[in-house]
């Protein structure tokens, strides 16, 4: 890291601490005080043997009053540039090894949030911290799985997995072995020589997941990865993802608009408000059947959590709808 960026980050941190000190309003909007993060860490440590029980006071990911706005287009008649505020004062801590799901109404800035975590975008205000260090760009310790798979169509499944390793500078011979190993992990060893167009949607997404995991990132960022899949494939992949997460102990931040998916996958579910997106509430999910045989989707706990998240979300969806209508009318 350069000295310039370090000084910038220190000044940013001082301003951020002063900012967090004053308005009491932020406490009500952002319901993820530091305590919630550590509490969740405890559940992660006990409930799942992920081997990351050594989580210290510094969370793996911390979103500190993060805001993001885009310079708006000059709108037709008036020609005024009103910036679009995608995210405002987002506060969220994710402990190491934790599976956090972010759910929110469409257009609330979920994907923007993931771009910020991935380092593809810079926050307009606040800080995105990874192990206490501000995120300044993409890095090998984070890997993203996209909704549209983002496989290179001219490469086979194995070569696609190797692509991530090439970028990470892994020597050629090691690449093939690692790619095979991770294709095995997602159950596609037999399909390593197939091109993406020869694979089904579910298989493509599994290749993409294998590619992300092969680089051995600490954090897996998933941007609605199962949204384009049919219901059955989605369920299978959800179960597989949980299995992989339990085996590898990765920190996962998973974006979705599906309440069922959020409750099923997440240890914690962060519900975002409609635009501008803030964290409305973070719900701790307790599903004892997770990872065990039987369908956790039919348990009473699942239903209760589902209802809880649904109620939180539906106010926001209604609000988003009225906002949209007003925008159309104006």
């Amino acid at each position: 890291m350069t000295t310039a960026s370090t000084t910038a980050s220190t000044t940013a941190s001082t301003s951020a601490t002063t900012a967090t000190a004053h308005p009491a309003a932020t406490v009500s909007t952002a319901t993820a005080p530091p305590g919630a993060g550590t509490a969740a860490t405890a559940t992660a440590g006990t409930g799942h043997s992920t081997g990351t029980a050594t989580a210290s006071a510094v969370p793996r990911i911390r979103l500190d009053r993060v805001g993001k706005s885009y310079p708006g287009r000059p709108s037709g008649r008036r020609g005024a540039r009103t910036p679009t505020v995608a995210l405002q004062d987002v506060e969220l801590d994710v402990a190491a090894g934790e599976f956090t799901v972010v759910v929110g109404p469409s257009g609330c800035g979920k994907s923007t949030l993931l771009d910020l975590l991935g380092g593809l975008e810079r926050p307009s205000s606040g800080r995105v911290l990874l192990d206490g260090e501000p995120v300044t760009g993409p890095g090998p310790e984070r890997s993203t799985v996209f909704q549209q798979y983002a496989l290179l169509p001219w490469r086979t499944a194995r070569a696609n997995v190797e692509f991530g390793l090439e970028a990470a500078g892994v020597p050629r011979r090691e690449r093939a072995a690692r790619a095979r190993e991770f294709l095995q992990l997602v159950g596609l060893r037999a399909f390593e020589d197939r091109y993406p167009h020869e694979l089904s949607g579910g298989m493509r997404q599994r290749v993409a997941i294998a590619r992300s995991l092969a680089c051995d990132p600490e954090v897996l960022l998933m941007d609605e990865p199962f949204a384009a899949l049919d219901a059955q494939t989605r369920e299978t992949l959800q179960d597989e993802l949980l299995g992989i997460w339990q085996r590898t102990g990765k920190t996962v931040v998973f974006i979705t608009h599906s309440i069922d998916e959020a409750v099923l996958l997440g240890q914690r579910v962060a519900v975002l408000t409609s635009r501008p997106g803030r964290v409305k509430e973070v719900v701790d999910i307790e599903l004892d059947a997770r990872g065990e045989p039987g369908d956790p989707r039919s348990s009473a706990r699942f239903a209760a959590h589902r209802r809880q998240v649904w109620e939180l979300l539906h106010d926001e969806i209604d609000r988003a709808r009225t906002l949209e209508r007003e925008a159309v009318a104006a």
Partner: peptide, 10 residues
């Protein structure tokens, strides 16, 4: 998305 992938891989 391929460009985004490339960027995310630095």
């Amino acid at each position: 998305t391929l460009l985004k992938l490339g960027r995310s891989m630095n």
